[in-house]
Design a protein around this nucleic acid. Structure first.
Lengths: 226, 226
DNA sequence: CTCTCGGGATCGTTCAACAAAATGGACGGC
DNA sequence: GCCGTCCATTTTGTTGAACGATCCCGAGAG
């Protein structure tokens, strides 16, 4: 019987806790892209030793959220226009594949997809655009999950995390309040009805428009800061 | 067993050198799946401190080559039958997508693909099945590279590394000397001729057969050691 | 044979120290 | 005023030792 009562963080190595804390700080925008991650200060903040913090840094670097340069330290990854294009190559590849193969997916994955779409609608309804954006990404994560691959899910999760990084760089940019809810719901309905070709076309249009919006936002942020 | 490297490793953090040395030792089969990675011993062998070695371990764990369990240490990842099925879901998704989108790929990617196919033929010609297997994986890596995505390339590289892990567990198994060279060359020729539908069918058959062979091998290895 | 109970062995983590390199600012030349 | 140089300071990369926590394994009790 263990006495440590720190919720879901028990039984975790403190290096893992440090990685989570850092990941959370980055994805919440508290540590924006480009921010220097000074070991001494941040390690003290998370209450771990510098060595342990460095283990967490290595892990986040391997995940692509952090960039390490020898003797220059670690910084939060900045998302370039080229990165955005790459991200959308991935999205097109995996989401389109998921649509094509959706006939093989088990029923429960569709209900999960339905619930994700409902959440997007709910957050959109209360005009919480940030939450709606997150919910929409979760919908697309659920879409890719139709493929039923752990590895693809993990990979796609990391890629969407980088996309959120791009959002953090340029929040509330024009075009970001696009009608996600209707688009996602529409794609879901077409999928459920087995109209995969139409779903694929709809998804293709959605991704193209989304990519353009994110690219504009990233370019705007680069212009502002460079 | 010496894990030390020498060549072009200047300007690299020694944690990175340690990660490379360990990765190489794992992928070469010198540290087989399931092997315990004792920190003190291996750190001494690579001539780095235990702390530095632990950074390397974290990195390899994030890459999926190593599994860490609290207070039980790190082991080389073992590849289960389910892992193999997952790997082939990834291969089908990415390689098929690459074939479908191949019309958009620039010319130089096709010449790289051609050269990769030639290398498979060369190694097959000298009956070096191990080298031929590696070359064939490189051909399929080049195939996925038609998509032109850094992220997908990196992801796929890691997945194929795990597949090599499965080979390491069960080398020279029946079905592994399958006619890779002809298959790969055939797919390349169909692609170059723009006959994408036929290439897709050929690839599909190839992957199905390959998956079955690897699954049999992994199950055989599990039976031997379980 | 199974269960319990040590006694290593190994892991997870911290700390202090140091070399190497980057950083930033004072200084002087133009 | 502008520019490059030099040097003190900071930060990183790495090490070695230490120590509690936990696992592993074998000896002995039942």
């Amino acid at each position: 019987m263990r006495l440590e009562g720190k919720g879901a963080e028990e039984g975790l190595a403190s290096a893992e806790r440090a990685a989570r804390a850092l990941r959370e700080a980055i994805l919440s925008g508290r540590l924006p892209p480009g921010a220097a991650l000074r070991e001494a200060a941040l390690a003290a903040e998370i209450a771990v030793s510098r060595n342990t913090f460095r283990e967490a840094l290595r892990q986040l670097a391997a995940e692509g959220l952090v960039v390490q340069q020898l003797y220059k330290g670690a910084t939060v990854r900045t998302v370039s226009a080229e990165d955005v294009r790459d991200i959308y190559i991935v999205r097109r590849a995996l989401e389109q594949r998921a649509v094509e193969e959706s006939a093989l997916a088990p029923e429960e994955k569709f209900t999960a997809l339905d619930q994700a779409a409902a959440l997007v609608e709910k957050e959109t309804g209360r005009a919480d655009w940030r939450a709606a954006g997150t919910a929409s990404l979760r919908f697309h994560q659920a879409l890719v999950d139709l493929l039923g691959s752990r590895k693809i899910n993990g990979f796609f999760h990391g890629v969407l995390a980088q996309l959120r990084l791009a959002f953090a760089a340029a929040p509330d940019e024009a075009g970001f309040q696009a009608p996600w809810a209707e688009r996602d719901r529409e794609i879901y309905d077409l999928l459920r009805a087995g109209r995969r070709t139409e779903a694929s076309l709809r998804l293709s249009a959605y991704l193209a428009e989304s990519e353009r919006a994110v690219l504009d936002a990233v370019r705007g942020a680069a212009r502002r800061s460079g």
